[in-house]
Design a protein around this nucleic acid. Structure first.
Length: 658
RNA sequence: GCCCUCAUAGCUCAACUGGAUAGAGCAGCGCACUUCUAAUGCGCAGGUUGUAGGUUCGAGUCCUACUGGGGGUACCA
């Protein structure tokens, strides 16, 4: 049962006497921020002032007069300008919490209208190593899939792999010119990665050599301007005026620093090749590598047998590579239909759009011009190649025909919002207006310096290395012998390994999901594996404590459930914990409404904290009264189930001891 | 240039979509271990929510302008 919706129903019934849209008005029910105002507050009296032309407190009184909540709440109170404060009865909380023990859905009720959602997430480019940038889409998409399923909706997950792009042109080119056959036979993926990196650095080298002089000039100019602006600012007498100029000169300085950074970055790319005489010689022999790579890609797309054979040979290895990461992270897809799958459909898509008069030639390319957009969606380049807009349209049509989804979520970087705005604008024009399309966008992962996370070489930090680092850091932090010394029996090596793995991987997922998806967030390995604060270790510890109590009493969750002892809340810590446990459905509703798993993280952290307070104040086995003992034990079990289930919905496992 | 997005405590982030005195954590200071794991709990301190206006019973949240960060902007994805 969901408390908030139950109260909303009651509220709506009371409002039916006053307004003709009671259900809508009843939505203005919120949990209170301050326990002094009870547990929930109805805020609908104030806004009704105009509509009913009466003072809000009077309206509130009328609502309260009709409000039938005596079975759930104490007498409602009207406070301030017209808030209606509701305080749940302790006996009701106890009964509801007791019911939780026998409910595998933990209070979640089947939806009135189950939806079918197709979630498109992760979607890495294969053939290059997965990096930290893929983490957000993967982790958020997986958590959303788990949450929507738990809420009773039908979910189809699809990994729209980038398996047909320029990166294959790069490794095909690399293979043709630089392959080490022995290395390829021995470890194909490693060799392909080496080839990818080599070709990439050669392309970067040539473009950096060209770009460097202008970047230097720009950096110098900006530097001078910034210096001048700072000087000028110092000479200004008027204080306010000086402050304003200072601000502007600071901005200029930052821009100058960024330009200088860019020069350093370019120089780095040049140095990377020039430091190695062999590589430099190779660079000299492959001056047109950038366009040659595009040609290899184009040949692949046009069905060139040699390139197609190479692609067929490379792809399984590339898939093994990413599947290893998914396996590690316990992430699964119903479908993996990459770009290559849609490639044969693209000419037909363009043809149809042209025939329908939606697309037309412009500057040699085939474009869909849309009102409200400056630039068109280009679906075929002047050289005949197709673009991701084309693929996305083909994908949309295919999904519509094969998956009967009523909603499609694209868990993709915020930077692509323009693209999705266009895609979603085209959809109704091609008869797909019935699909609810949603760009579930997310922000960038930043390093500790506030810049997008990169390694020192300028490449994106590799994902597997990151996971290894997290597991190692978790081992150091969580399996510190001083801390685990009191565990009896002592932790075995296998148990330590498992704890480090669960906490390490969990830390990465948790830190990502803890931030609202739309904001950028600062990635700090040290903070995410920390034991204090809003971290996965804190939740794991709370969970481990619940298990510790069961062990101490030589009992199990099943035994406690079968005993059917009622929960009754007396102490504040018991009440507040029990109420928190009843709110999982509310938290999940929020996740679904915003497509934002962070709401579940906040909820779980809040619940774990309340459990910790309970744990400190309400001993189980030392309680004198057997009824109190049984009630607290039942609360412990309910907590353990909520935390385990909640973390599971985030894709995170639990450990029994730590 | 135009469009999108962000700006909240020293730091990292919340704030249930317009509700009451803006909350957590970290860092700092203090208190509590004979324990079902102190990997915890409690307390103190920390804020003109970037600036200036506006909308209304009520604004961190909405509108306008400005300042600053990030991103995008016709053939990469």
């Amino acid at each position: 049962m969901q408390i908030a919706s139950l109260l909303k129903q009651r509220l709506a019934a009371a409002l039916a006497h006053l307004v003709d849209d009671p259900d809508e008005v009843a939505q203005m029910l919120r949990p209170t921020q301050d326990p002094r105002f009870g547990d929930y507050q109805a805020n609908c009296a104030m806004p009704l002032k105009q509509r009913l032309n009466r003072p809000p407190r009077e309206i509130a009184q009328q609502i309260v007069d009709h409000l039938q909540v005596a079975d759930l709440c104490h007498e409602p109170e009207i406070a301030g300008p017209g808030f209606i404060n509701l305080r749940l009865r302790d006996d009701w909380i106890g009964e509801a919490a007791t019911a939780l023990l026998d409910d595998s859905a933990l209070g979640v009720e089947p939806p009135e209208q189950p939806r079918t959602l197709l979630i498109d997430f992760s979607s890495p480019n294969v053939a290059k190593p997965m990096h930290v940038g893929h983490i957000r889409s993967t982790v958020i998409g997986d958590a959303l899939a788990r949450c929507f399923r738990f809420l009773g909706h039908r979910v189809i997950t699809d990994n729209h792999l980038g398996d047909w792009g320029t990166q294959f042109g790069m490794i095909i080119y690399g293979y043709k010119h630089f392959v080490d056959q022995a290395a390829f036979e021995a470890a194909p993926v490693a060799e392909l990665v080496r080839l990818y990196r080599m070709v990439n650095s050669l392309i970067d080298y040539h473009s950096a050599v060209v770009a460097l002089p202008e970047a230097r000039t720009t950096a110098e100019t900006l530097r001078e301007e910034a210096d001048q602006a700072r000087q000028a600012a110092q000479d200004i007498e008027d204080k306010a005026e000086r402050k304003r100029h200072k601000k502007q000169s600071d901005a200029l300085s930052r821009r100058a620093a960024a330009a200088a950074d860019k020069v350093v970055g370019l120089q780095h790319k040049v140095d990377a090749v020039e430091a190695d005489d062999t590589l430099l010689a190779v660079a000299g022999q492959h001056t047109t590598i950038a366009t040659d790579v595009l040609n290899e890609t184009a040949k692949l797309h046009q069905g060139d047998p040699e390139n197609r054979a190479l692609w067929d040979r490379f792809l399984p290895h590339c898939q093994d590579e990413i599947n290893r990461v998914y396996q590690r992270l316990d992430i699964h897809f119903d479908h993996t239909l990459g770009e290559s799958f849609y490639h044969p459909m693209l000419p037909g898509v363009v043809q149809e759009l042209k025939e329908a008069g939606l697309a037309r030639d412009s500057e040699g390319a085939v474009c869909i011009f849309l009102p409200d957009f400056d630039a068109p969606m280009i679906i075929q380049k002047k050289d005949g190649a197709f673009l991701y807009g084309t693929t996305d349209l083909a994908t949309l049509k295919y999904r519509n025909e094969h998956f009967a989804a009523d909603e499609i979520l694209y868990v993709v970087d915020s930077r692509q919002s323009d693209h999705f705005d266009k895609l979603f604008a085209v959809a109704p024009l091609i008869g797909l207006g019935h699909l609810r399309l949603r760009h579930v966008n997310f922000g960038t992962v930043l390093g500790e310096d506030g810049k997008p996370l990169k390694t020192r070489s300028g490449n994106n930090a590799g994902l597997e290395g990151l996971l290894d680092d997290a597991v190692a850091a978790a081992m150091d932090a969580v399996c510190d012998p001083d801390r685990t010394a009191k565990l009896d029996p002592p932790l075995s090596e296998a148990e330590r390994q498992r704890i480090a793995r669960v906490i390490g991987h969990g830390a990465i997922k948790y830190a990502d999901l803890a931030h609202h998806r739309t904001s950028d967030y600062r990635f700090s390995l040290q903070k995410m594996v920390a034991l204090e604060g809003n971290t996965v270790a804190y939740l794991q510890y709370a969970y481990a404590r619940t298990q510790g109590i069961l062990r101490a009493g030589q009992t199990s969750e099943d035994d406690v459930r079968k005993a059917e002892h009622p929960i009754s809340v007396a102490a504040d810590a018991e009440r507040s914990l029990a109420l928190a446990l009843l709110r999982l459905p509310e938290a999940l509703q929020q996740v679904a409404d915003d497509y934002a798993p962070s709401a579940l993280v906040d909820y779980l952290y809040e619940t774990a904290r309340k459990y910790m307070v309970f744990n400190d104040n309400c001993p189980v086995w030392k309680a004198d009264d057997p009824a109190v003992q049984a009630s607290r034990l039942a609360l412990v079990v309910a907590t353990s189930r909520v935390i385990r289930t909640g973390l599971g919905l985030l894709g995170i496992e639990v450990v029994e001891r730590m």
